[in-house]
Design a protein around this nucleic acid. Structure first.
Lengths: 169, 169
DNA sequence: CGCAGTTAGTTCACGATGCAAGTAAATCGA
DNA sequence: TCGATTTACTTGCATCGTGAACTAACTGCG
């Protein structure tokens, strides 16, 4: 029940078959465990949360190592309030600097400092190693490719459905 | 940088190639967005968090609709403190009942009540529909099968590596 | 029995998160 | 050019999750 079989409700929807159910349970497991495993590695190895790493990584790849807050929020798939607090912490640690945009005073530009650059350069190898260990090493080349395609399709589906979906009725 | 290319550190590790990097960014996106999309659907449709749903679902599939707290914690991939609080909330709402095991007083047995059963029976169809919409509908049959296999391999890798992985050096 | 040591859960304190309200700057209409 | 609206962020509050200490119950050895 709760994913497959069961015959209780009216207008019974399309339940998951055994193969889908198995895939789903594995995916939920990955959702729950991979985030925390990566968080643990970064926290222990570099003293950064995965989210903080992504903020630094996003800035490190941007032109001038600078992005507006809302662009950075888009890159990290997060809302502005969360980003604001995290960037505040990173700023206190000296890895990011915030300044109002000269062209538009509403806009806040976040810039990676030299210390921040060094921080991510020293943190990246260990993190990439963990990503390999957890994700790519156990997969075949074809599976890695499929994983990219699968992730892409799921993200598109979420984008297109972004709303409170109609319930059963 | 931060995932591919870059030549800064000594003993440079195996960076991600373009295909892997793309797959990785998509997977991170799924990690960030799918959880919150499912949470939003359940919260809006059924007034349950995804974690609460999993607790009820776990109990609904167990013999006697009953599990010990630590077994339930294993099923939901979570620690006991978190589970204890969530089950406490579900108990206040009348969907779960806790009682000490007759055979061993240290053990707490969590049982799904009749109300809890009805709750999950009414919540499941909408949730399964969302899982389909976000995950399986956009995938081919072969991709769904691959997803199961990929998830399985990643979970095994995490299980085997559960520790603070050695850093770059 | 009786006490040390272990196991199972709970509780507490702290930090992180997300929504709603607040502030400051820019744009647009009169 | 002045005020109303919109945009871009920040702050505050209420909630949730995590790790460390705490309690209760069982086990085993004398």
């Amino acid at each position: 029940m709760t994913y497959a079989c069961g015959m209780e409700t009216p207008a019974e929807p399309r339940w998951l078959n055994a193969e889908e159910r198995d895939a789903w349970l594995n995916l939920v497991g990955v959702l729950m465990r991979l985030s925390s495993a990566l968080d643990a590695q970064l926290r222990c190895d570099a003293g950064l949360s995965h989210f903080e790493y992504m903020v630094l990584a996003g800035l490190s790849e941007a032109p001038e190592r600078t992005l507006r807050m809302s662009e950075l929020a888009g890159f990290t798939e997060s809302g502005l309030p969360r980003l604001s607090q995290v960037v505040g912490r990173l700023e206190k640690r000296g890895w990011v600097h915030r300044s109002p945009s000269p062209s538009d005073g509403r806009i806040t530009l976040a810039t990676l400092t030299e210390d921040g650059w060094e921080k991510i350069v020293e943190s990246a190898p260990g993190h990439v190693e963990a990503v390999r260990a957890y994700v790519f090493d156990p997969l075949t080349k074809a599976q890695s490719r499929q994983l990219g395609e699968i992730g892409h399709r799921i993200l598109r589906a979420i984008d297109h459905q972004e709303r409170c979906p109609g319930s059963t009725a």
